[in-house]
């Protein structure tokens, strides 16, 4: 087990370097630079421009800039935002709980509906139910997220007025963040209605963010189940006189979950990418929105530092998935 873990950790090093190069290079490929964008319409004198370039180190050769950046990261310094002048790591830590809260809710929703739907579709293969589920899943998978988000806002926030349009909680409530998770903080604050407000703000973004993972998980569960249901050991389980619920829910599902867990792990990456759109639509103050804003402002240090932190999170999740995979699949355990 330890060797397995070390192997996985060792693989993270080249991945990390690769991500750092891409994060560093891509933001610089975009035309424009932070100084001109900060200066706004009035512009900046050539003299002052060069002075500012030197301040941020943009006058050095690009390779030197990269190694400066890499060196700083190895010392735990992810840079300072050019716009807000706050350390990138600090901004990340403030905003990440919002994204994490949204992502966790979305993955829970996607798993809680996707797996049962997939099982049901597989067991009733070819039925009306199966075809409807797979049809809906295909639509969900193909739909542009921002369009879907806007549709839901128009219906539930506009016409029906059931849910708020944007933000994490109503402005009526104010309390100091403790955990950064609004659901928990609102409960801790003890203010009446705060938790309800936090939940109602969370519903639409969660649904929007969960849509693609939900469709993918349902389809993957269905196909894994179909494969497993025709295995000999499922016949053995039935030959024991076990009830269909136990045969399907235990003997078949346990095996079908192996590929599904991998899929769920991969969806976490998709989720963080989806968060960029979802957070923008719902003005959700998370890292997705933060990244988009920083790209528009060409905030080099935020984009390159933030991307690396996000990539780190995804790698961490994948590591956890690998470990869980070992737990549910005895064949790869040592």
């Amino acid at each position: 087990m330890l060797r397995f873990l070390l192997q996985k950790l060792g693989l993270l090093i080249p991945t990390f370097i690769g991500v750092s190069i891409i994060a560093f290079a891509f933001i610089r490929l975009l035309p424009g630079d932070p100084i001109t964008l900060l200066a706004g319409e009035r512009g900046v004198s050539a003299e002052r421009y060069e002075q500012l370039q030197a301040t941020y180190g943009f006058d050095k050769p690009i390779v030197v800039q990269y190694f400066d950046y890499l060196g700083n990261i190895l010392q735990g310094d992810f840079g300072t935002s050019i716009v807000t002048k706050r350390p990138v790591l600090e901004e990340f830590m403030t905003l990440f709980p919002a994204t994490l809260e949204l992502s966790i809710c979305a993955i829970i929703l996607a798993t809680a509906i996707g797996i049962p739907a997939g099982i049901f579709a597989a067991v009733r293969r070819g039925s009306f139910f199966d075809q409807s589920i797979m049809g809906v899943a295909l639509v969900g998978y193909s739909m542009p997220i921002f369009w879907w988000g806007l549709l839901l806002i128009i219906l539930f926030s506009g016409i029906l007025q059931w849910t708020p349009v944007s933000g994490r909680i109503s402005l009526l409530y104010f309390f100091q963040p403790v955990t950064g998770f609004m659901l928990i903080d609102s409960l801790l604050s003890g203010q009446a209605g705060a938790f309800k407000s936090a939940v109602s703000h969370l519903i639409l973004p969660t649904v929007v963010l969960a849509t693609i993972p939900l469709a993918v998980i349902a389809r993957q569960t269905r196909s894994a189940m179909l494969e497993v249901l025709s295995e000999d050991y499922v016949r053995t389980a039935r030959s024991k006189g076990l009830a269909p619920m136990r045969v399907i829910g235990l003997h078949a599902l346990r095996n079908a979950l192996i590929p599904v867990v991998t899929t769920i792990g991969l969806q976490v990456g998709v989720l963080l990418a989806g968060a960029i759109l979802t957070e923008t639509i719902f003005s959700w103050p998370g890292i997705g929105k933060w990244m988009v804003d920083s790209v528009f402002k060409r905030d080099y240090s935020v984009v390159q530092g933030g991307l690396l932190l996000i990539a780190g999170m995804i790698m961490l999740v994948n590591l956890v998935v690998d470990l869980v995979y070992g737990l549910i699949n005895p064949r790869i355990r040592r």
Partner: peptide, 15 residues
């Protein structure tokens, strides 16, 4: 009770 032709695949690999 019944036993089958392929013992290796007749036992559930997860248990």
């Amino acid at each position: 009770a019944m036993i089958f032709q392929e013992p290796m695949s007749s036992l559930n690999p997860c248990f």
